[in-house]
Design a protein around this nucleic acid. Structure first.
Length: 955
RNA sequence: GCCGGAGUGGCGGAAUUGGCAGACGCGGCGGAUUCAAAAUCCGCUUCUGGAAACAGAGUGGGGGUUCGAGUCCCCCCUCCGGCACCA
């Protein structure tokens, strides 16, 4: 006899999967209408489950992509069955460096390669059966989409941060309001004191009246407040990529993309004043349900530290320099021990000195230091430095101390200058020892402290006049008060976070909606001219260079336009203007895509207000979003800070996308454009899918196809006969262990693929792909199929009377799957399904039982579930049915087996009626013959009985 | 160096609150079915000793708390991830 005709095999899986995918599409089963649209059910609560949208590379989907997508798909399908309106969208993050690099490699225009890649990604995602509402699909390269990205940029450009507003937490406000306040005299007119691109002289200038101000001075003042501004800053310049990069994009001194060396370079660039939001970005991490590791990473990246800014008068300051040196310190208590000062090579004092002559030694040092790449800086931490020849006065004791220039002080942090206190700081100690600077201890170290080391701990102040005897904390406060009284310094909070460098000199990105007039002043283009379409460039290859050469500059016809054409209001219509030639970085589009999903076709707004409120406002008590919407605005006691209910994606964006998106979102919130202060209420990172490889004795790795397994767990390298050990490693071409999703789909089908990825282990863990183990999931689906369907006839197998024991197991399985699904423990949910199917194998379920089984597995294996549902005669689509639910009373047994331990070791198991309390359990146990035998003639010292759990006898 | 996470059979992993360690899957072994194989079904599978009953050991190592520890506390080792001259 041949194979049973109606067996579930991979050919059959492929057939039903594509068939049901067509049916779902035809019937619009994945469509989720918005409020106000036909078919929208306002009585249901909402659930917004989001994936980090993929970067469509030419290589197609990686097995890592479906891991997160399957997780969200299971949850979305489950929530839909449980009675939620579910928003589960997908799109493509298609601007940016990788796409452009790929285009350069292949010689095909990025517009073409990314569109091809998107089509391929979409095909693969649809083949996996994910229930995305494809009507909401978007790509960041769509003109309709990036027009709104540009619109948001203009919102930031036309806003400022008012530190006094928002209950002293600060709030973004329209720049027009600031101008109004300047004009009516309610706000002192001065350059933004927080603006790092202005020196202290500019910042200390004040202006009497707005009317009296020149246009240039007005610009100087206003532009210093904008959240998007052009600043001359020391930036990360990557010659190989031909572009500047954000701090977040530089890892160990190399570019995050490509791993090319990065240099420090002063450049005029578009920046975002993200530092203004540092405090709120930090505080609000407490309002979201995010993985601890990611919260820690953002906290450290923002890097709040409190201390004081202290002013040291310079005794021999060069011309063109303010005459004082300001430093930031977290240890103002150690001021009496500040025996020298250090400025960074990029410090303005150094520029002034070199302009006024300066020593050759200083000039050489500064040039060398400035040309060192970050990698070189990190390779050698040996302290170097030269004397500037300038001296400063220690405000605490009046000592004249030398000012050094050394690259261990960073230009980008604090004021780019420090007071060096070698006795209380390891780095200063090292430098002082190398250059013979005096060391004065101002904190008494404990007796066992190494004499040859700095002491950074707590202890009584010494050699510090009025501070002597005080602990570090008290001494800090007293010193700050002392400095403030004398105008020599003040309390100061400093952040490690730098402003976000937002312009790139590359081609494949959103153009800035900005033009420059003949005088070089920037103007926003008219909103009605958006989207500003990226011109088609034939030659988009960057030139490796030490200087920025924005590629769009080549589009000369596009660059040169008129104020009228660009919609600039405050210039004559025919005034010639030049478009900004820089482009936005890849992060721009991903900063707000989740908002566009809520209302992707809206032509009037970046997202409709009603749609945004419905999908983003989440009540804290789990009540319906409709109720949240009745308030209209965010209400912190009733609603969650974050909008997206669950966001799943990789952990690699912890301080990139996940920080940038929070910043944009907060600005939009402040401006009243969105309803919640945070974008993502709950965040989850899926682990990486690795693969096996084999390690030789010397630690080197051998490719999978060069190794064979001789016996269980013993691996031999075929060529040499040497034993090797199985290890996990990242998938790589050289190790021949890369898994191609298309191959897995062809061999096993989508349901098996989905199930296997969810069964490998906990979602958050990184785990190796085991090609052999996939078969186990395929066999499980076969058993599931066989429990419901007669393989010979293809008809439904059914018992006349439902098996009572199986009914009980079914309820337990449903309860377990429901609980595990909600806490994203998909691996154990699947284990429960397998257990049930194994128990039912060889027995018969009633049609009703089979239907419930089918619905419970349907979020996990939707295609086979749909096929079973239809064969069982179910109404409509399985995926649109209600969740079966379970009966609590079916979860308890009449009798339970309880282990009896002696000193914690299980000796016998006794069966007792369920629900006995501790005393009754003890009585029952002691009456048991086996327990009596166990005790024998020993004295029973103590009995611990835990109802329903165990009994422990202490003999 | 600092911060975060982890370490459980041959492998992936389970144990939700301190209460039966190893669920479930892979692999392995044995059996049924078959002319035979594949497929399927049934059984066994932490280690050591033992034919078995059973005994002992056992969650990276060492110590502790507890009637009872994979779970809590202290010390140490290893691996993964992040940060790394941030004053």
């Amino acid at each position: 006899m041949s194979e049973p005709e109606h067996r579930y095999d991979s050919t059959f899986a492929g057939e039903i999967e594509t068939r049901w995918q067509s049916v779902w599409a035809e019937r619009g089963a994945f469509d989720q209408p918005n409020p106000g649209e036909p078919g929208f059910d306002a009585s249901k609560p909402k659930y917004f489950v989001l994936d980090m949208f993929p970067y469509p590379s030419g290589a197609g989907l990686h097995v890592g992509h479906p891991e997160g997508y399957t997780a969200t798909d299971i949850l979305g399908r489950y929530k839909k069955m449980a009675g939620f309106n579910v928003l589960h969208p997908m799109g493509f993050d298609a601007f940016g460096l990788p796409a452009e690099q790929y285009a350069i490699q292949t010689g095909v225009h990025p517009a073409k390669t990314t569109r091809t890649a998107i089509d391929n990604f979409r095909r693969q995602l649809q083949r996996l059966g994910f229930a995305f509402d494809w009507r909401r699909e978007l790509a960041t390269i769509d003109e309709d989409y990036y027009g709104w990205t540009q619109w948001i940029f203009l919102k930031l450009y036309n806003s400022w941060f008012d530190p006094q507003a928002g209950e002293a937490r600060g709030r973004g406000r329209p720049i027009d309001e600031l101008i109004k306040e300047f004009a009516n005299g309610s706000r002192p007119i001065r350059v933004n004191p927080e603006a790092s691109e202005h020196d202290s002289d500019t910042k200390s200038r004040t202006f009497a009246s707005w009317e009296g101000l020149s246009t240039a001075d007005r610009r100087l003042v206003i532009d210093s407040y904008r959240l998007a501004y052009i600043g001359e800053q020391t930036v990360n310049w990557c010659p190989k990529l031909g572009t500047a990069l954000a701090n977040e994009e530089v890892i160990d001194g190399k570019s995050e993309r490509g791993g090319f060396p990065v240099f420090r370079k002063p450049l005029r660039q578009w920046m975002f004043r993200i530092t203004a939001y540092a405090g709120r970005l930090l505080d609000d991490l407490g309002e979201v349900e995010w993985p601890e590791s990611t919260r820690v990473q953002q906290t450290e990246w923002i890097g709040r530290s409190t201390g004081a800014e202290v002013r040291f008068e310079l005794v021999d300051a060069p011309a063109g320099c303010s005459g004082a040196l300001e430093v930031f310190t977290t240890r103002p208590d150690t001021l009496f021990g500040a025996t020298y000062m250090v400025v960074a090579p990029e410090h303005p004092l150094v520029d002034a000195l070199l302009e006024a002559g300066g020593s050759d030694e200083l000039r050489n040092y500064v040039l060398t230091a400035r040309n060192r790449s970050d990698v070189e800086r990190q390779e050698s931490k040996k302290k170097t430095g030269v004397l500037t020849g300038v001296h400063a006065i220690n405000p605490a004791n009046g000592d004249r101390v030398p000012v050094w220039c050394a690259d261990y002080v960073l230009a980008g942090y604090g004021t780019g200058a420090i007071m060096a206190v070698p006795a209380q700081d390891d780095r200063d100690w090292e430098f002082a020892k190398a250059f013979g600077m005096p060391i004065v201890r101002t904190v008494q170290p404990p007796a066992d402290h190494d004499e040859e080391k700095a002491f950074t701990g707590d202890g009584p102040a010494i050699n510090s006049a009025f501070l002597n005897g005080l602990g570090v904390a008290d001494a800090k406060s007293k010193m700050i008060a002392w400095l403030e009284e004398r105008g020599k310094g003040e309390r100061k909070v400093n952040y490690r976070l730098r402003d976000w460098l937002f312009s790139r000199q590359r081609y494949w990105g959103e153009p800035f909606p900005i033009v420059f007039d003949a005088d070089g002043h920037h103007h926003p283009i008219g909103e009605h001219t958006l989207p500003l379409v990226l011109p088609d460039l034939v030659d988009y290859e960057p030139v490796e260079s030490q200087d920025p050469q924005p590629l769009l500059a080549k589009a000369t016809d596009w660059i040169a336009t008129t104020a009228g054409e660009a919609g600039v209001k405050d210039l004559p219509v025919d005034a010639p203007v030049r478009r900004e030639a820089n482009t936005m970085p890849g992060w721009a589009g991903s900063c707000w895509y989740y908002l566009r999903y809520c209302d992707p076709k809206n032509g009037d707004r970046f997202v409709g207000r009603d749609a945004e409120r419905y999908w983003m406002l989440t009540p804290k008590d789990g009540a319906s979003a409709k109720r949240a919407n009745e308030f209209g605005t965010f209400e912190p006691t009733l609603m969650k800070a974050g909008g997206v209910d669950l966001y799943i994606g990789g952990a690699e964006h912890a301080v990139l996308h996940l920080l940038y998106a929070r910043f944009w979102h907060k600005v939009l919130f402040d401006l009243g454009e969105v309803s919640t202060p945070e974008p993502f209420a709950k965040l989850f990172h899926q682990g990486m899918i690795t693969s096996f490889a084999y390690q030789r004795k010397d630690g080197s790795l051998a490719a999978v196809d060069t190794v064979e397994e001789r016996e269980e767990g013993v691996f031999i390298e075929t060529a040499t006969g040497d034993p090797v050990t199985q290890v996990t490693a990242k998938m790589s071409k050289s190790l021949k262990n890369v898994i191609n999703p298309d191959d897995v789909l062809a061999e096993h089908g989508a349901d098996t693929f989905r199930l296997y990825e969810m069964y490998m282990g906990p979602l958050e863990a990184s785990k190796p792909w085991d090609t052999r183990a996939i078969g186990g999931m395929h066999r499980f689906i076969q058993r599931l199929w066989r429990v419901v369907i007669d393989e010979e006839t293809g008809g439904v197998r059914s018992a006349d009377t439902p098996d009572g024991e199986l009914e009980k197991l079914l309820h337990r399985m449903i309860a377990k799957v429901q609980g595990d699904t909600e806490r994203l423990a998909f691996n154990t949910a699947i284990a429960a399904m397998i257990e049930f199917v194994n128990a039912a194998t060889g027995k018969s379920l009633s049609v009703d039982q089979s239907k419930r089984l089918t619905l419970v597995v349907s979020p996990y294996v939707p295609h086979v579930a749909e096929e079973l549902w239809s064969r069982l005669g179910g109404e409509g689509l399985a995926m649109l049915q209600g969740w079966p639910g379970f009966d609590e009373s079916m979860l308890v047994d009449d009798e339970v087996e309880v282990p009896v331990q002696v000193k914690g070791k299980v000796k016998v198991r006794i069966t007792v009626p369920a629900g006995l309390d501790a005393a009754a359990l003890e009585t029952a146990a002691l009456a048991h013959d086996e327990v009596k035998a166990l005790i024998g003639d020993q004295t029973l010292r103590k009995v611990v009985a835990v109802p329903g759990r165990m009994i422990n006898l202490v003999l």
